[in-house]
């Protein structure tokens, strides 16, 4: 969403390392008005990247929401983002699912493709290979529903492009840790 901060300030020379990493942060928050604005405002105000963001209430009785943010930056920046998020008053917990390694990430996409004849057959074949479901069809179009890692969705979308891609709607990444323990 944000363009990476350019040109780097001479002040930050000592900390900036060229190694840009992608991380997924799971942020458990009190679901109070404005909490999403606080989180998003933190990213825009401090010049951090948001590659994708999902949010939904996960415990209705306790009013807890989980915000999952895919971000990228130098390791020091990711560390800063983590601790800046923890500083927000309504934040319960921040977990870096990328450094904790044992995590699952999924995204859902709906992909609209238009075409006739050979293109139609190609689209159907590829959809089967990607385990995409058809959720809408006309004589000249399909809408596929597909879930998986963001990379898999990228791949599918790229393959559909020459066939007749119309548009894509994606949810952004949801993530959770493996095994019996909570995040």
């Amino acid at each position: 969403m944000n363009t990476p901060a350019s040109p780097p300030s001479p002040y930050s020379a000592a900390l900036s390392s060229s190694k840009i990493e992608s991380h997924t942060l799971s942020v458990l928050v009190d679901n109070e008005p404005g909490v999403l604005a606080r989180v998003v405002g933190l990213f825009s105000g401090r010049g951090y990247n948001i590659e994708s963001l999902t949010v939904a209430e996960v415990a209705h009785a306790e009013h807890l929401s989980r915000i999952t943010i895919a971000t990228s930056g130098a390791p020091e920046t990711i560390d800063q983002i983590h601790h800046q998020l923890e500083r927000l008053v309504p934040v319960h917990q921040v977990t870096d699912l990328t450094t904790s390694a044992r995590s699952l990430e999924r995204e859902l996409a709906m992909v609209k493709v238009r075409g006739r004849g050979e293109n139609r057959a190609d689209a159907l074949q590829l959809a089967e290979a990607f385990r995409a479901r058809i959720i809408d069809a006309t004589t000249e179009s399909f809408i596929f529903e597909l879930s998986g890692k963001p990379g898999k969705i990228d791949e599918f979308v790229d393959l559909m492009r020459p066939i007749g891609l119309v548009e894509v709607s994606r949810t952004g990444v949801a993530a959770i840790s493996r095994g019996p323990e909570p995040i």
């Binding site: 002040y11 000592a14 020091e76 560390d79 800063q80 923890e86 500083r87």
Partner: peptide, 29 residues
């Protein structure tokens, strides 16, 4: 305080006491 960061106190070990975790390693490791 730091002036030019890449020349800031190059030979020292640093202890940082702060109540705000995000202040630590923000500008200087």
């Amino acid at each position: 305080i730091t002036g030019r960061l890449d020349a800031f106190s190059p030979g020292s070990k640093k202890i940082h006491i702060d109540i705000d975790r995000s202040s630590i390693n923000k500008n200087v490791k």
